[in-house]
Design a protein around this nucleic acid. Structure first.
Lengths: 216, 216
DNA sequence: CTTTTGCTGTCATCAAATTGACAGGAAAGC
DNA sequence: GCTTTCCTGTCAATTTGATGACAGCAAAAG
């Protein structure tokens, strides 16, 4: 029952699926389901049953043989394994259309991902208040990041400014970056970047509309 | 030089990378680069050189041995291969915060992905005009989709309405769905769904902040 | 108490994707 | 015209991830 220190490298695909499992499990919990076994859960998630059991095995044993998984405690187990059962404080850089849209997207805060400071390099924007937050100059970033225990940076600048924004974030000590800008950024080994790009998904749909590709 | 009809199944990962290549190539083109070889392009994209050459090989031969690739014509070749060098007309269902944010995100139209109709099931929203588009009742969807040659549906409803929204879209004849709702949806074999969920990315960052996982 | 049923956790097998190596071919230098 | 350089396209080898099979265990039934 204790979580064994499995030191194996965990595939990125597993992390992505765990996020899906949380999503589906939360919807099950809302509908009042208390127990679920791997096969129906797998079907709801669009994956194989063995896959779920193997993914969970990286972190410990959470089920009961012959019975299944308790929905609530499995959610707790996964969120704990991913370390997303606590507050994460974030900074956003680039207060344009997209940035403002994200600030109004209250789901972040509800899930513990809290945008607590926003930055821009446009002098006309500095001082403006968006969704209760004052726009700061990027020069102030190191101090504000340290004061507020900010661990994640969100880039919502135009593509040509993305690299500079990343540099600002890294200089302020941030090692986790969520990049909405349409550009790849160069970072040292220890910094982690996640890219969000709607067009990647649209391209997949467009291509698939004609010629089928391998379904994963 | 002619595009051979390679009938091999194209991995989903390849499609995703092709989208990245387009992104990087467009930024290179803006900076005036005319020719690039696979190694520096690979570095800019964060992948291996062989990977790029193999990905492109699925669709034809686009480079010149000893020289490299012409940036402009490679963009043209990839966009053509993915069939994203034409207009795609889309419908959006669920005119809440997220839906409105996407409607204001003008990049879609610039890239040929055009939201031309919006729907909601809330009677109070029907008739409202958002970003120049009138909110329609879902009952009107089949007619409007047919009239406007709509090929892609975007779901931006709350999670508990996502499945119903998907059904509406499918009944209207749509087989490609971009789902922003935080729920998995069930669809028949021939329908394609892409899921967009920021939390997947945030979870990856959170997890990676502590324990490293295999970098892909 | 014993047997049956059902589902987990794990290992072995299988499939797929990434990486590395190299022949083929175009341009530049001599 | 010949040689050298360089980079593509492709095949083979390796690594990685997914699937299938089954022993181990808990609960329910008899």
């Amino acid at each position: 029952m204790d979580t064994p220190p499995k030191t194996a490298r965990i595939p990125r695909a597993t992390i992505q699926r765990l996020a899906t499992y949380i999503q589906v499990l939360e919807n099950l919990a809302r509908d009042g389901t208390e127990i679920i076994s791997s096969t129906p859960l797998a079907e709801a998630c669009g994956v194989n049953g063995s896959q779920i059991r193997k993914d969970l095995a990286y972190f410990g044993e959470f089920g009961i043989r012959g019975v299944g998984y308790n929905v609530t405690s499995l959610i707790a187990a996964i969120t704990s394994a991913l370390d997303v059962n606590r507050e994460w404080r974030m900074a956003l850089i680039g207060v344009g259309n997209l940035g403002k849209a994200l600030l109004n997207h209250s789901d972040f805060k509800e899930r513990g991902f809290n945008i607590v400071a926003i930055f821009d390099c446009d002098p006309f924007k500095i001082g403006e208040v968006v969704h209760g937050l004052e726009v700061h100059c990027t020069k102030e970033m190191p101090a504000i990041v340290a004061e507020n225990n900010i661990e994640i940076g969100i880039i919502t600048t135009p593509p040509e400014r993305a690299q500079r924004a990343a540099t600002h974030l890294m200089n302020a000590g941030i090692t986790s970056i969520l990049n909405f800008a349409s550009a790849r950024i160069k970072v040292p080994e220890h910094v982690n970047v996640e890219y969000v790009d709607f067009f990647h998904h649209l391209y997949a749909l467009a291509f698939n509309q004609n010629k089928l590709f391998a379904k994963n």
